[in-house]
Amino acid sequence: MKQATLHARKAGVIIALLGVVVVLSSSFRYVPHGSASTRDSAVSAQAFMKVYSVLMSPRCVNCHPAGDVPLQGELSQPHAMSPQRGDDGKGVYAMKCANCHQAVNLPGPHMPPGNPNWHLPPANMKMVFQGKTPRELALQLTNPATNGNKDKKKLLEHADDGLVVGGWNPGEGRALPPLSYAEFKKAWRTWIETGAYAPAK
């Protein structure tokens, strides 16, 4: 009897493990990333680590906060005066992003940086970067349910989004992301085109 239970438990564990493996590999393959020959998990995950260094820099993470208030500055502290995300990511009431953030950077230190499309992710798709491990962020970015409904094509194109590119024009007194834009875009494409693999951790 005992023996039988033990076997059943072992079988259960094996089934559970198999389940985990299936779940992981299917999330790797969320989009058909080209032909099998272009897939390379090592190259892909390595490229993602470069991407990750940019996405976790203040220029990106400050508008991908874990909470509903954006971050600001080189230390990614909560934004002064606590502007709220709002449903559409553009603020609330008298505290909408564009009330201060203009279409362009304003000259001078500590002046509001600008972009015509200044906003956070919307409330129903927060796309949080803050606090995410490389693995968590890679999986989030490849899943249309958590990446803003982007398929592979849209994900590739996202590197050309005006607000993403705006990270390399941060305004006076703000550090640039750790890679040049060209390096970032190359790593972004490499990551996706070699299979969009998530690093192990």
Binding site: A80, K96, A98, H110, M111, P112
Partner: peptide
């Protein structure tokens, strides 16, 4: 003069913009 205090708020097409950092061209 740097969008920090709110003393200069006016409505621009109904939004509460800070006029100290809003260019007149906008």
């Amino acid at each position: 003069g740097v969008a920090q205090c709110g003393a200069c708020v006016v409505h621009l097409d109904g939004e509460a913009v800070r006029s100290c950092v809003t260019k007149v061209s906008r």
